[in-house]
């Protein structure tokens, strides 16, 4: 028998921690999303455009929705249906939703026309679409909780559609208690998780460059690589990096 020792990598000695699933997970996470990508200090110059504002606008709207929703859930329907402060917080909740959807739809339009799934950003696009769909369901259950004639009308119109697709007996829009639980517990968790995943995917792959950004753009390639197109590079540097002094 050959007893000659074969040198094997020793992850613990190397400090990589690859023996354990936590060590492997840490290595994979740090490779996918190093801290400088998760919390960058600056962005490419093309991000200085209103076209890149609406995603974060939607996130800001979501923060207001969750904060006002927490206040509403802590005090209950008898408070927000009757008291003036309750009415105000209820209205903040509604108008945050309006702004959330307005910003999200404009964000969707702009990213669609930018073909924002380019450059390996397919999962970013899919999580964004999922966030949109889950948000629609969440907003729908919110409209059912107005407990007025509007919500009654919406519920009994939706009832037929949900029965038609076979889930009406399980997801019963006429069951106010069930819809209340979905709206304040399950669906907010789903929206929060999908939006968080979407933002993480944006950080992993970076914001999508404009379609007309040339491949020779200094910001789209490794800063250490030197291109052969010196003329293009010098023009790019003069417009993108003002601190670079041109002769």
């Amino acid at each position: 028998m050959n007893t000659e020792a074969v040198p094997v990598p020793n992850p613990e000695a190397d400090g990589t921690g690859a023996y354990t699933w936590t060590g492997k997970a840490r290595r994979w996470l740090l490779k996918q999303l190093p801290p400088e990508k998760l919390l960058p200090e600056d962005q490419p110059s093309y991000v200085a455009s209103w076209a890149y504002v609406f995603g974060m606008g939607a996130v800001a709207g979501l923060v207001f929705i969750i904060a006002s929703g927490v206040v509403l859930s802590l005090n209950g329907p008898q408070w927000y249906h009757v008291s003036s402060l309750g009415h105000f917080v209820n209205s903040v909740h509604l108008w945050s939703v309006e702004l959330f959807f307005i910003f999200m739809v404009v964000h969707l339009w702009i990213k669609f026309w930018m073909a924002a799934w380019r450059g390996g950003r397919l999962l970013t696009w899919i999580t964004g679409m999922l966030a949109f769909l889950v948000s629609i369901v969440t907003a729908f259950t919110g409209y059912l909780l107005q407990t007025n004639f509007d919500s009654q009308w919406i519920a009994f119109e939706a009832k037929d559609a949900l029965n038609a697709v076979g889930i009406g007996a399980w997801f019963n829009v006429a069951n106010l208690g069930q819809i209340f639980m979905w709206h304040i517990m399950l669906l907010p968790l789903a929206v929060g998780a999908v939006v968080a995943l979407h933002v993480v995917m944006v950080r992993v792959h970076g914001v999508v460059p404009p379609i007309d950004a040339a491949e020779t753009d200094a910001q789209l390639r490794d800063a250490t690589s030197s291109g052969t197109d010196s003329a293009t590079t010098s023009v790019t540097n003069s417009t993108v990096h003002p601190e670079v002094k041109q002769p």
Binding site: D42, S45, A48, S49, W50, A51, F54, I110, V240, E243
Partner: peptide, 16 residues
């Protein structure tokens, strides 16, 4: 949507 395409971003030229 239209304003986002046509309006200049404040301070955009000074940014890196």
């Amino acid at each position: 949507f239209v304003l986002a395409l046509v309006l200049p971003f404040p301070g955009g030229k000074r940014r890196k």
